[in-house]
Design a binder for these strands. Sequence first.
DNA 1: TATCTATATGATCATATGTTCATATAGATA
DNA 2: TATCTATATGAACATATGATCATATAGATA
Lengths: 102, 102
Amino acid sequence: MDKKDHHFLSDETVEEASRTFKVLADPTRIKILYLLSQEECSVTHMTEVLNMSQSAVSHQLRTLRGLRLVKSRREGNHFYYSCSDQHVINTLNQVITHIDCE
Amino acid sequence: MDKKDHHFLSDETVEEASRTFKVLADPTRIKILYLLSQEECSVTHMTEVLNMSQSAVSHQLRTLRGLRLVKSRREGNHFYYSCSDQHVINTLNQVITHIDCE
DNA sequence: TATCTATATGATCATATGTTCATATAGATA
DNA sequence: TATCTATATGAACATATGATCATATAGATA
């Protein structure tokens, strides 16, 4: 391939892609996102199902919220979280599918 | 969704997915993989095109080699690297495409 | 109003990761 | 054989990140 035919990524694109993959690189966030991709659920529920401390779950939810990958709604004393970025879920599912079919 | 209908990921699957995303989470590796997805090239060439130190490139290639995402062949004094995991390239391209079309 | 429940958050600490610098190495060439 | 070139690698260092612990907070309830 001739050098002039190359496509180069802009720094912004590289950084954005890196951010996307960084979010998905942590086991805890993978579990949370995969769970939320199947059902909306409360922090308490996540904590129980994932067998993690409330604080750890909450901190990761903060990260995910900051990146607008999840959203929450209040119902009484509970906050119900759900996914808000289908593209990230698609990417996650694609990789998981590939792993599981090997 | 009823709890019994949930699909849970095994720890191994989560770990494997995490590993995959971790590799793609670093800007330098993204640049290297994207370059190699377009053409086989030598370490010297990568160093010049990516404007990075030889050592930094070489260290990252070691990481990528360890994970069998790239392979190399010798030709005289040069080592030519190329991609060896199309699935990872597909994942990378999918995310990049999504970013660039926004 | 006092307290309880669910969630959020700040500080701290340990670990992981990427770069640089210095140097090693293997094959090519003088 | 001496040296040069391309690449690899180890040590050291700085930064980033995730978990935990303690505590704050807001709405519900007694």
